[in-house]
Design a binder for these strands. Structure first.
Lengths: 137, 137
DNA sequence: GTGATTGCAAATCTTTTGCACTAAA
DNA sequence: TTTAGTGCAAAAGATTTGCAATCAC
């Protein structure tokens, strides 16, 4: 279980040093209450509207990036021209189904990259990402 | 060594069932003569202009996608909103340096993903990609 | 109050598209 | 000649930005 589950969204924003504004609180609630999620900006905006929460798309973009910078989200790039944001910030990898645009976690324990190559001279590794593309059989 | 090294770009296009037009021949020459490369559409277009080869950007995009479909190139997505095309179509993975936008091959032999997880029900794995993000120390 | 945040619309950037023109077979 | 390929300019889609209005502290 994730320790952060026990934090209210309000507390999360406080810890991240982000003012708990109406918009940020509402988006954080959509994102962090319940199961882990993978959303695009457009999707999150649509969901907010569905819940009758007035937020502009620009603010959704800003918020997603602020959350990412604060370590509350992780950005996943699997498709040219569209970013996904993952509420699971622990080390893990992804399945991606292109046709449906579905991104899905691979539990950290079920895949391991062993024996990493050494990076080019003067460089350090900042992250290792595995994307397993899948298709309907 | 790559067998395809011995094919002229003309033959390559023929085999791929693409008419060897002036533009395609010129772009293929930039891409396939010499070392393996990672280029964006914009970069390739710039390079063509540099060599005084008149090609429109739209044609560069078309050509990159046709080459990719024909298996002459491989598309690599590491950054939101920009695609790279890799002339190395063999199975291998990448280092990516965000700051400089530099993509670099990891020799196929020096990294192996062992023990793949089983895909979601009804799905088959189409590809496995590892991206190791690096930064200047 | 004061500085951070928001919303809007316009701008930007990459990529795609429609269509008349050109070139390869 | 016939069909595929090209170039241009316009369109599309995702994202960002500038700036005045608004909100949290």
């Amino acid at each position: 279980m994730n320790l952060s589950c026990s934090l209210s969204v309000f507390e999360r924003l406080k810890i991240a040093d982000l003012r708990p504004t109406r918009q940020r609180l509402a988006l954080a609630e959509i994102l962090f209450i319940g199961e882990d999620r993978h959303v695009t900006a457009e999707q999150l905006h649509g969901e907010a509207q569905h819940r009758e929460i007035p937020v502009s798309l620009a603010t959704v973009y800003n918020t997603l990036h602020q959350f990412t910078e604060a370590g509350l989200l992780r950005e996943v790039v699997v498709e040219p021209g569209r970013s996904y944001f993952d509420t699971n910030t622990t080390e893990h990898h992804h399945f991606y189904e292109e046709a449906g645009g579905q991104l899905c976690d691979i539990p950290g324990s079920s895949l391991n990259v062993v024996c990493l190559p050494s990076p080019p001279a003067g460089m350090t590794i900042t992250s290792v990402e595995v994307i397993i593309r899948v298709a309907r059989r």
